[in-house]
Design a protein around this nucleic acid. Sequence first.
DNA 1: CGCTAAGCGAGACGGTACGTCCCGTCTTTAG
DNA 2: CTAAAGACGGGACGTACCGTCTCGCTTAGCG
Lengths: 204, 204, 204, 204
Amino acid sequence: MCPLPSPKRAGRPRSAEADEAILDATRAALAELGWSGLTLGDVAARAGVAKTTLYRRWPGKNELVVDAVAALFEEQLDLPDRGGLEADIQGVVLRFAELISRPETKTALMAVVAEATHDDALRLRIRAAIVDRQKHLVLLGRERARERGELPPDDGGGPERDDLIFDVIAGAVVHRVMVSSEPVDPPWARRLARLLVGGLAGLY
Amino acid sequence: MCPLPSPKRAGRPRSAEADEAILDATRAALAELGWSGLTLGDVAARAGVAKTTLYRRWPGKNELVVDAVAALFEEQLDLPDRGGLEADIQGVVLRFAELISRPETKTALMAVVAEATHDDALRLRIRAAIVDRQKHLVLLGRERARERGELPPDDGGGPERDDLIFDVIAGAVVHRVMVSSEPVDPPWARRLARLLVGGLAGLY
Amino acid sequence: MCPLPSPKRAGRPRSAEADEAILDATRAALAELGWSGLTLGDVAARAGVAKTTLYRRWPGKNELVVDAVAALFEEQLDLPDRGGLEADIQGVVLRFAELISRPETKTALMAVVAEATHDDALRLRIRAAIVDRQKHLVLLGRERARERGELPPDDGGGPERDDLIFDVIAGAVVHRVMVSSEPVDPPWARRLARLLVGGLAGLY
Amino acid sequence: MCPLPSPKRAGRPRSAEADEAILDATRAALAELGWSGLTLGDVAARAGVAKTTLYRRWPGKNELVVDAVAALFEEQLDLPDRGGLEADIQGVVLRFAELISRPETKTALMAVVAEATHDDALRLRIRAAIVDRQKHLVLLGRERARERGELPPDDGGGPERDDLIFDVIAGAVVHRVMVSSEPVDPPWARRLARLLVGGLAGLY
DNA sequence: CGCTAAGCGAGACGGTACGTCCCGTCTTTAG
DNA sequence: CTAAAGACGGGACGTACCGTCTCGCTTAGCG
């Protein structure tokens, strides 16, 4: 993922345990203290690792947190086929909500996105590690809908439509959780899914 | 607005110019340095004011920034009637996008929301100063649509529907600007509006 | 001595107690830990002071230690008249030895002199704060000897003779204490004094 | 000399080139950076050697520097007979001055002596490697003077007199070079020699 | 002649101190 | 009582070295 030194190196190799311990400690500290309370010295102490070891791998708080959070998104790439577009959307919504409602992601995601407004490299990292993985789920759902005939086949409309539907789903979930501070429960998810299914018909 | 109005006080009164200078300096510093680069000492220096003066009025960075950004939302409460639901939604979307695309809001909004995950008072302040004002626009648009007969009259469905449509609109805009880093231009706004108008029909 | 800001200043004035506490703590830490074990953070903690307070007054370890040690030399400027040149020299020797044999000076003096080989400002500081005060005693003794007629009056021989006798006395004492690690006791001092008195006769 | 000679060892023997390269690099780094700027990592890099190689031979900075400097004193053990006590003293003085005025010795000697105030083993090492070699010269000069009849034969006065004259000569030279920062040139050396010859007459 | 024990380079490791920056509070003088 | 100025105690920062360790690779000598 992030620390990818050249495959064959002289000297003592980096400890893989340390990597894992640091990321675990980061998530724990985030959940406990929040973004602004997160201290790299504290993370190092929790991980039983020297501060230098941490800085050898990540340039700073932002990048570390992105990787720590990204790990949570890593294996969530699949989604059961629920048999219909509306049900699939509802599933995606609940999956998103589950991930971003965890205490460690809730406090971290917005903060790193805020930092990314002044840091292009960070933005790319976030996109590669988190956003694109979420997007994959949305596109997967649309593909299934096409195969089922619920949506017309790809007409070469380009990626704009991808972006629209992804921004709507992800944005709505994030906004509800973070700004409105309301839970994303199955009823809400179903209403959102119904709204989108109804609207998509008119778009294609 | 925010600094405790303290109706009757002895001694030299507080300078009103200072308030404005501080908020202006805060916005300038935000746009220039981003949230994490923002320093209260630096804001005070830009405003030509002592740090004490600043702390006398605001308890900390978070609250100051909320007020500084809220001022931008203050007079944007109205929206011309564009004659139809889809056009009105498009108008709201573009209005939102315009506000949160400014450099000072872009970097600040996400950051304070992130802080608010661990600070209830801050969350209330954000809601009162910013979110509710945005929400007002959305509700205003729905009311007009009802008056025009584009939507059925209020059936007492409660505030859930308000929350859904607001989270969808605001969330989509924020996500496109902040996460996808794509512009919210009239074509995109129109496609979003069409999606929602299509979907709303099925919800009511 | 060292922190001499302009006489009239805005803002809170620097604490004189802090100055004294820092210098005391420095001497204590020196005596306890030696030069290389001395830590500015530790000094600050002993003095009950923040590290920043310390750095606001002194640029680094070297300068702080010079001032801390110099304070010991400050009031040792006088010397009782023992009635004769040899006795006066013996007195000076014992006085020197007493000062540089203290644990805090013993470890510190050589170290700062070593640092001064690469730092001209430090060398000047040492000279002004410590060396010149020692030298004063030596010159005082020679003046008395002239008044007593033990030495011929000043023949305009210039400062070279001052330097010779001072380097010999101070150097011998320092070398015995630091390098030979032998005590400077009255018998040794008397033998040194006799050597010098005998030799001085031939020089003038 | 210093790296444990370990008469019989299995495995690959230690590189003798490395030893020399390390000591050379140490002297170069000392002259360039001074004591406090000297870094074992830097020495290793200059010597083209791994840090481990260095630590396998010396326990630390102090010991390494003592050995590096001592090498300079190693072959300076002899002194031409100048035909008289005063001339011999002058010769010794100039020889000392030459050695301790080099940039690498100037900065190193005082520093290791300062460290030795808290480290007995280091003090012994310094004495054996450096001080005793200097002392040998002084005693050699006195022996010659006795053979010439300039000084009375050894009356069993014990080593105290050795220590006195040695501390005076070495101390004066060191003090002039390090503290007074004045050159030890032939005129100064001659005046010091004359002072001592005159004084010694009265001591014996 | 091939084993084996040590040396060697490289560089990661846990740690300590550094000197700086900012925080939020305080103590001053001036108005 | 406010304001500007600036020192204060405190805490985190990111860096530099320390001295140790773990690697993969020589390199000698002994069996």
